[in-house]
């Protein structure tokens, strides 16, 4: 029953995909010769002018271009012409670093907030004010103080991924069932051991949910941040190709951003499943 449901869903997905590609193809294909001009002039104007072809690339153009990129992902022809693999690599590295720093800060701090009502109350106003600030609003300040565009991007990733993790950790830790804590107390388990053997495993699913939200936000923000700071990365690539008026490359980049985002989410989802316990 479930497998047949999965099969039917897959069929519908493929049908939708083909329909989308078909409509896209029809909408962007040329309508044949529309204007007569000298061959030299026609070559200069391109198919858009001569055959009524849309300026929007069709699926075949994108597919061909994508195949070129896939064949040579890591070429490096100077600052404005690097392989997509290299650009994605820069973005993933920045996200990874900023995110890692956020984990290191948010999880211990979240533990502290969750375990101590005093610290919770004391830090609450700061968190409430800092949390809603758009991470990009920090960018000028980061550029001014850090004076390095790459590090500033990492800082922006850090600041945007810290909040969901911090809040989820604090919530998960504070919401650990009283009876589990009581078990540890009746067994005279010390605070540190209790934190690792009871609170951490009990709060782990909530903490990882926060981490999953964070990685999603970090990946959203890195594109915008790289458009601002420039230089390298998939965000910069999108902006650069827009300036080159290469819509094909922009579409390819959009596609890859989506694929990488999905992969990052799936990795975290797998970790979440690993620490989730049935009750």
């Amino acid at each position: 029953m479930t497998s047949s449901l999965r099969l039917r869903a897959a069929i519908v997905s493929i049908a939708l995909f083909l329909a989308f590609i078909g409509i896209w193809h029809i909408a962007t294909r040329g309508t044949g010769a529309v204007a007569t001009m000298t061959p030299e002039y026609a070559r200069l104007m391109g198919l858009t002018a001569t055959h009524g072809k849309s300026a929007m690339p069709g699926p075949l153009d994108v597919g061909a271009k994508l195949w070129e990129h896939v064949k040579r992902p890591f070429y490096d022809n100077g600052p404005n012409d690097k392989g997509l693999g290299i650009q994605l690599g820069y973005s993933i590295a920045r996200v990874g670093l900023g995110y890692f720093l956020a984990v290191i800060v948010a999880i211990p701090l979240g533990f502290l907030i969750g375990m101590s009502p005093l610290i919770n109350k004391a830090l609450d106003p700061f968190i409430q004010i800092l949390k809603p600030i758009s991470p990009l609003a920090w960018m000028p300040l980061a550029l001014y103080t850090i004076k390095d565009s790459g590090l500033s991007a990492i800082f922006v990733i850090f600041i945007c991924s810290v909040w969901p993790m911090l809040l989820n950790t604090a919530f998960g830790v504070a919401a650990v069932r009283k009876e589990w804590i009581n078990v540890a107390r009746t067994l005279e388990v010390g605070t540190v051991r209790r934190a690792f053997t009871v609170i951490l495993p009990a709060a782990a699913p909530t903490i990882l949910t926060g981490m999953r939200i964070s990685i999603g936000i970090a990946w959203l923000v890195i594109v915008a941040a790289e458009m601002l700071v420039g230089g390298t990365g998939i965000g910069y690539f999108v902006w650069n190709e827009w300036n080159n008026l290469s819509i094909t490359n922009v579409i390819i980049a959009i596609l890859l951003i989506g694929v990488v985002g999905m992969l990052l989410d799936q990795i975290l989802a797998r970790f979440t499943r690993m620490v989730t316990f049935p009750e």
Binding site: E179, W180, N182, V183, T186, P201, P278
Partner: peptide, 19 residues
Amino acid sequence: EGTSLDRAVIFQSHALLPW
């Protein structure tokens, strides 16, 4: 003074660690 390993508690809701 506080809990002790000399006094074991059997909880109504069993309170097993599910993981």
